[in-house]
Write a protein that binds this DNA or RNA. Sequence first.
DNA 1: AAGCAGTTGCGAATATTTCGCAACTAGCGT
DNA 2: ACGCTAGTTGCGAAATATTCGCAACTGCTT
Lengths: 135, 135
Amino acid sequence: MAEQHELRDKGLRLTPQRELVLAAVRELGHATPEEVAEKVRATHPGINLSTVYRNLETLENVGLVQHAHLGHGGATYHAAEELTHLHLVCGTCGSVGDAPIDVAANFVQNLADDYGFKTDVSHFAIYGLCAACVK
Amino acid sequence: MAEQHELRDKGLRLTPQRELVLAAVRELGHATPEEVAEKVRATHPGINLSTVYRNLETLENVGLVQHAHLGHGGATYHAAEELTHLHLVCGTCGSVGDAPIDVAANFVQNLADDYGFKTDVSHFAIYGLCAACVK
DNA sequence: AAGCAGTTGCGAATATTTCGCAACTAGCGT
DNA sequence: ACGCTAGTTGCGAAATATTCGCAACTGCTT
Ligand SMILES: [Mn+2]
Ligand SMILES: [Mn+2]
Ligand SMILES: [Zn+2]
Ligand SMILES: [Zn+2]
């Protein structure tokens, strides 16, 4: 008597909207609330944008999704189980590249040692110039 | 015949508003457009917020100021000549700590070597848990 | 002194996220 | 199965943050 549904297990009511928002986040990789809404509308045309915002927040509170900041604008959401990676955003062409968190291991260690700071390197993007734009 | 004024040297007109916006950014360390406006209003009460936005953009274009993203909200501006540092923002208590860019030297090198990515580590904040909140 | 392009103030337009509230409904108890 | 209640939704409005259009103004060049 437990694994009825992952949402119920987190103490949440199982509504079609909530289920679809979670599914959309998982399918999209990372997406803005607007993009999630658009995806959900494929199967549930009537969903309201505020419902998407509220569910993203709720899902984040129970640890099923997380948000990150990839650009100058709003946040994007991704499934929590997705293995995290760095986002390298180029200030010139706007491209967003990925890199495994390992490349930051040393950096993270430095911050822990010197400042007692426990870093989540993937919450904010890493900004700079991509290889193409450096030239 | 050159050093009339640093703004003129950049090809910009010297207006009281522009001069005051630049001065405010320099005095404030890092500040949001709203904070810059408030500071400027001490000497020039009538300045409009859009004038502040426009001047920050203009000043950034000529390299006198830069912006960074320290939190979930909007950007903050700082003088370009200010030696850059990392911003360690705590997701729990919201504190913003500073750290010299050196701690990221190795990380920056890794990204350059592995991805040809030229990193500006201080454009986005580094997110995590501060020493106090780790406990 | 005169002219013009750059700049400002102001109000409106966008864009994004949050809120209040009445209608609705998932899940519990009976 | 049926109903109750608290959680959830849709909707419109409000709150934020940033950008824009435009007419009036002004710094700078000639
Ligand atoms: Mn930026
Ligand atoms: Mn965040
Ligand atoms: Zn690029
Ligand atoms: Zn903290």
